[in-house]
Design a binder for these strands. Structure first.
Lengths: 203, 203
DNA sequence: GCAATTTCGTACCGTTTCGTACATTTTTAG
DNA sequence: CTAAAAATGTACGAAACGGTACGAAATTGC
């Protein structure tokens, strides 16, 4: 409503977006507990009090990183899943897009912030809730995409197929962190996509 | 060779086995970094120096816990997988046995120490290596069991089926920690077992 | 200019961290 | 009974931790 309500005091010089991405990288490398506020301060270039002002305490920094990571992943990979065309190709492309996020270079694999590091800190209720949200999100998107491709399938079969696709994605994070190569997981994703479509086509 | 070489000094009074199991429970509740030596000391009833003497530093305590947990799981669940009879039933029983480990009571789910907490701390090379070992172990046992049930299947199909079964198990840990009920995951395991066998039977 | 307002980092606080030196206790060997 | 050996916990140290009070800096309104 108000035009340019021009803020009053000293203008902010902090780039919260790039700071958030630096925090994401740190958190998915080392998890929540192993990252100190000094680590975050050094990685973002912001002083510790600045971090508090911009993002709250350490827990809310981590939860904020989960949200930002989830949004980035959704914007980058979901269009591949929901693209028109054959389901098998869509699934394969979706897996590959997610692997593009899970791997930094060809070698180093920080994996998934949500599926990779959150389970380790799920005794914090806020983290557990956000982890659950991420899993439910993937499950429901998968279900919707499969129902779109096979509208006449039994609901139980759709659900199983969706769960198997989600489980593949969830396991990718652990496998990436354990040292699996990106190409190996890409092949695993393509084979899983093929199998899941075969299941849906079976009569 | 030597009969009873009777140790010299004060006899040890520490029950390292029960101490190790207390450490396992702590580590899979809170991960590696969030657990302090004081926490471990309180949970085991041992003083901090005693922990050092018996298990080395914190990192080797965690790796030791991974090994003990893996051995327990192997002894409890692998017989179900390798039992004679239908593959679908063996897979379902194996998943259920692992869920029996992942869940403490019906509600509280500490999940899997290896698949649940290790990915978050894989920047430690020792942890990463042990995580990789755990995944490879499950993969190879799955492959062997499926080859036994379907000796004439193409190797590529066996491999895909094995990966999908492993991925189901890996994802169970994240799902358990996120709040999924044990019965929900049990149903998911049975449905996945059915699907995987269907894949192997398809011509 | 001058006061009000907002941003920002230095410096500090109390607590917790991992790790160990060392004295004490309990056993065996002779 | 004495000396060597092994196990154990108290007590300590240096460093790192999360979090914040507070003063300096930068801007707007008047």
């Amino acid at each position: 409503m108000s035009e340019t309500p021009r803020k009053r005091g000293r203008p902010a010089t902090i780039d919260t977006q790039s700071a958030m991405h630096a925090m994401i990288e740190l958190f998915r490398d080392k998890g929540y507990a192993a990252v100190s506020l000094d680590d975050l301060s050094e990685a973002t270039g912001l002083s510790r009090p600045s971090l508090y002002r911009s993002f709250g305490n350490k827990l809310s920094m981590y939860v904020g990183a989960m949200n930002a990571f989830g949004q980035d992943a959704a914007e980058l990979a979901l269009p591949k899943l929901e693209a028109d065309g054959a389901l098998e190709q869509a699934l394969t492309n979706f897996f590959d897009a997610m692997l593009g996020i899970y791997y930094r270079d060809s070698d180093i694999a920080p994996g998934c912030l949500v599926f990779g590091t959150a389970p380790s800190h799920a005794d914090e209720e806020e983290i557990k809730a956000r982890l659950n949200f991420g899993i439910e999100q993937v499950d429901s998107r998968m279900r919707a995409r499969m129902l779109q491709a096979f509208p006449d399938s039994e609901p139980a079969r759709i659900e199983t197929a969706a769960y198997m696709a989600s489980n593949t994605l969830i396991a990718f994070s652990a496998r990436a962190k354990s040292g699996a190569t990106r190409s190996a997981l890409s092949a695993m994703g393509a084979a899983s996509a093929r199998t899941i479509v075969m299941l849906l086509q079976a009569d």
